[in-house]
């Protein structure tokens, strides 16, 4: 048994975990329908929607524990009457004044433990991979030659251009690709990579994938794939706006893909290549498609969130007692 604020923290943690899992289940259940609807939105809007989905378990979990604590917190802050007297304070409950006793050997104890272990393992694994990636990038950078244009050149026949690095992303291009492209095509590639650098896309992709670790594998794969395509399409759209020519971007994409495909398969084969082939087609289709895509409905989302928060706050007392009932039975 753990009493006091530690007990309360464990209750909150278990409640946070349960709410986060419930959110993951709901999003996963509706993910196919959501993804289909997202096709109508611009790449930038799609990115934001996907971020909302990835962050939802943490956001909803956080809101849930704040709302649960609101009655007792408002009493503590002097905004409301003595909340605890309203139910006689006869059983353990979530409250700042009478922290509940947390039973370690209970269903909630198991939930708290499993969720803690799950998140800790993922956090340690992410830090380890992050460190390894940073070291590998540093090693690669030490063999790259910086150019006056901010692009790092790699002495390799492999045709490739990419942005690497999380905190200080840098554009890299191989000599193999540079020699194969015309100045205009090279400009397309460099502008595209500059967008990734400005937006810190490698870091965004990393964080998005980290958040998505909570989701089941099949859902995670689709959402990760859609996010990566949206990141690339967003950069393509920006370059198209700068160059006023969508065709040159599309033809450069094909040319670079063809050059990359000539590289021996064993050199480039990945553990998941089903997605990349699709990605190229989606990017070209977007470039050739002149229909207007919907922007991110920021005001609508803000209004819905405000409404939900207001309703949650209004029913906070009821929700609080439901949770207490759930814990004590």
């Amino acid at each position: 048994m753990i009493a006091g604020n530690a007990g309360l923290a464990l209750y909150l943690w278990a409640f946070f975990s349960l709410t986060a899992v419930a959110t993951v289940i709901v999003i996963s259940f509706f993910s196919t329908a959501i993804l289909q609807r997202l096709e109508r939105y611009s790449p930038a809007a799609r990115r934001r929607f996907l971020w909302c989905m990835a962050g939802a378990p943490f956001f909803v979990g956080g809101v849930a524990i704040v709302v649960t604590l609101l009655p007792s917190m408002s009493h503590e802050l002097g905004w409301a009457l003595d909340h605890c007297h309203s139910h006689g304070n006869e059983h353990g409950h979530l409250c700042w004044y009478h922290p509940a006793t947390f039973h370690v050997f209970s269903g909630l104890g198991l939930i708290a433990l499993v969720s803690f272990l799950f998140l800790s393992l993922h956090a340690v694994s992410a830090v380890r991979k992050l460190w390894r990636h940073a070291q590998e990038t540093r090693t690669l950078m030490s063999f790259a030659t910086p150019g006056a244009d901010g692009v790092y050149r790699l002495e390799s026949d492999v045709p490739g251009a990419f942005t690497a690095g999380f905190l200080r992303p840098r554009k890299l291009i191989t000599q193999g690709l540079e020699q194969a492209l015309t100045p205009v095509e090279l400009n397309v590639v460099q502008l595209h990579e500059s967008v990734h650098v400005t937006r810190h896309d490698p870091l965004q992709v990393f964080l998005f994938k980290l958040f998505m670790q909570l989701f089941p594998r099949s859902v995670r794969m689709r959402l990760n794939g859609m996010f990566e395509v949206a990141v690339e399409q967003d950069a393509d759209t920006f370059v198209a706006g700068q160059m006023q020519d969508r065709l040159i971007i599309a033809t450069t994409l094909i040319k670079v893909s063809r050059l990359a495909a000539r590289v021996s398969p064993q050199q480039w084969v990945s553990t998941s290549c089903h997605f990349g082939a699709d990605a190229l087609e989606q990017r070209i289709c977007l470039l050739l498609d002149e229909k207007r895509y919907l922007p991110f409905p920021a005001r609508t989302i803000l209004a819905v969130l405000s409404l939900l928060t207001a309703v949650s706050v209004y029913y906070a007392e009821t929700l609080h007692h439901y949770i207490e009932y759930f814990i004590s039975h």
Binding site: F162, A164, E193, P202, A235, V269, S270
Partner: peptide, 24 residues
Amino acid sequence: SVTHDFSADTDSLMSAFVSLSAEQ
């Protein structure tokens, strides 16, 4: 090595002009 997958089910961590791991 740098563009190698972050985990078994996801693509690389860097942003490439075209996916270097794609089977075109």
